[in-house]
Amino acid sequence: MHDSFDICLIRPEDTYALRHQVLWPDKPLAYVKIEDDSTGHHFGAFRQEELVAVISLFVENETARFRKFATRPDCQGQGIGSALLRHVFGEALRLGAARIWCDARQNSAGFYARFGLRPEGETFYKGPVAYVRMAVAL
């Protein structure tokens, strides 16, 4: 499936529409912007010319964090998000990270576990949505 889409760097503002549509459609667009978006590395998966998945990577010293990982609902389950996450793991390593983590929606924890991420700490909530911090050594 990987040959039917391309992954490349994109601008922070290019992530906002998908972040909004997939993650927080009931919130204002401003809600999906991250204060330090300008310091991140943002990647998009494109099918033909259409942006279908986004993820943002932040690396500080030897620790990387990915945030705002969103795949268009009609493109989920096709390997696009998995390829994007693998790409980000590779980029984190290239940028000197030894560990990567995220705040995962609890209903996505199984997906992340397939990449070796393991829960750390207690469940917490952002509004009504349950999250768990997950991490793995690279």
Rank of each mutant, 00 (worst) to 15 (best):
97 A>H: 10
22 V>S: 11
38 S>C: 08
17 A>Y: 09
62 E>G: 02
39 T>S: 13
3 D>K: 11
118 R>N: 12
4 S>Y: 09
1 M>H: 14
54 V>N: 01
56 S>D: 07
15 T>P: 09
18 L>A: 03
1 M>N: 12
118 R>F: 00
9 L>W: 02
23 L>H: 06
11 R>M: 09
69 F>P: 09
89 F>S: 01
70 A>W: 01
49 E>N: 15
124 F>N: 05
19 R>Q: 07
134 M>Q: 06
48 Q>S: 13
31 Y>M: 02
61 N>M: 07
38 S>F: 12
63 T>Y: 04
117 L>M: 12
17 A>S: 13
4 S>Q: 15
21 Q>F: 09
81 G>Y: 10
73 P>A: 07
132 V>A: 08
100 I>R: 00
1 M>D: 13
57 L>G: 04
74 D>Y: 03
133 R>E: 11
7 I>N: 00
26 D>K: 12
37 D>Y: 05
29 L>S: 11
13 E>T: 01
134 M>F: 05
9 L>E: 15
127 G>A: 03
127 G>V: 04
68 K>C: 06
83 A>Q: 14
72 R>S: 15
54 V>S: 02
133 R>S: 14
5 F>Q: 04
50 E>P: 00
4 S>V: 10
51 L>K: 10
47 R>P: 00
99 R>P: 00
80 I>Y: 11
74 D>P: 05
135 A>H: 07
56 S>W: 07
103 D>N: 15
84 L>H: 01
75 C>Y: 15
3 D>T: 12
35 E>Q: 14
73 P>N: 06
66 F>H: 03
120 E>S: 08
1 M>Y: 12
112 Y>D: 02
58 F>M: 15
73 P>L: 04
111 F>N: 02
127 G>E: 04
23 L>W: 05
117 L>W: 01
30 A>Y: 06
65 R>K: 13
18 L>V: 14
49 E>T: 12
67 R>P: 05
43 F>A: 09
